[in-house]
Design a protein around this nucleic acid. Structure first.
Length: 272
DNA sequence: AAATCATCCAACCGCCTGTGC
DNA sequence: CGCACAGGCGGTTGGATGATT
């Protein structure tokens, strides 16, 4: 690209802006059923009036079941700072060392919190803080930082893989070049486990999806929270790594969680 | 209570890279 | 080898929300 390539999608008639819960559910349903082999073709096949890029971004940054949401821990922040020293603005590489965190999330975290914090640190203690000195050089102009020879060749993880914090961790069986945004495409569900129904609004039910660690007991996978009560708390504890094709109970629990997260619970209840 | 300002973060945009033909 | 395409990345934007006046 960069060679006069046409836009990734027809701009006309495609929706932009925030995603609605129904769109989210439709996207999740499609990906869990068919995988995402071709992002450009996906929205059409899934019946979404969205650009393929938009679908991909939404999936990676928000809908992927292995996303860890909630505040960054101190360990995570320190990890980001250290990795930024090494890698510069290579957010996807940094994200690959922080299981459950997306490059976008880390980038936002850096721009809104860590950069300020480091600049404050550097001014308050003008002594030789390697972090502040390095971050200054990299954050001012990331492209320069990228071309810096010290950052250039860090393709292989200079640290052990991955840097873990107190949360659930992905297996690191894949090669070092992979990262969180570069997982193998989600595999379609097998027919036997693939029970996807769609309501009139395209909301799937019976998906085989993963579940939050905080929401379900790890051994029994029974819900910890009261499902008849208020919605479950935000998944601050992170989510277990994906195991596509797990048992059906997982599906239902996950979809129940999604329904609540996306605010579809009430509307579904109305429909039934 | 209303207006204004500041902050956060989801999403978009444009460019780059990798791959197949 | 060159081209076209798709995926991916990083920078930026703008709406939403919270804080302050």
């Amino acid at each position: 690209m960069g060679r006069g390539r046409a836009p990734c999608c027809e701009k006309i008639g495609l929706k932009k802006g925030s995603w609605t819960p129904a769109e989210d559910m439709r996207l999740v349903a499609y990906i869990r059923r068919h995988g995402h082999g071709n992002w450009r073709a996906l929205p059409k096949q899934a019946g979404l009036l969205r650009c393929g890029k938009s679908c991909r971004l939404r999936w990676i940054n928000y809908l992927r079941p292995d996303i860890k949401r909630g505040n960054f821990t101190m360990e995570e922040e320190e990890t980001i700072i250290k990795l930024h020293q090494l890698l510069g603005n290579k957010w996807s590489k940094i994200a690959s060392r922080l299981p459950g965190r997306t490059d976008n999330e880390i980038k936002n975290m850096w721009n809104t919190h860590l950069k300020k914090r480091l600049s404050l640190d550097s001014t308050s203690s003008s002594s030789s803080s390697s972090i502040s000195s390095n971050s200054n050089s990299t954050s001012s102009d990331p492209r320069k930082a990228d071309s810096d020879s010290s950052n250039e060749d860090i393709d292989v993880d200079p640290l052990s893989c991955p840097i873990t914090t107190d949360h659930k961790v992905f297996s690191c069986s894949s090669s070092s070049s992979s990262d969180m945004t570069d997982h193998q495409p989600v595999q379609p569900l097998s027919e036997s486990t693939n029970v996807v129904d769609e309501t009139d609004m395209g909301v799937p039910v019976g998906l085989d999806l993963d579940i939050w660690d905080d929401v379900f007991d790890h051994d029994s996978w029974l819900p910890i929270c009261d499902w008849e009560g208020p919605p479950p708390p935000p998944p601050e504890g992170g989510i277990e790594a994906t195991t596509v094709g797990g048992d059906h109970g997982e599906s239902e629990r996950w979809i129940a969680y999604l329904e609540r997260e996306l605010g579809l619970w009430a509307s579904w209840g109305d429909q039934e």
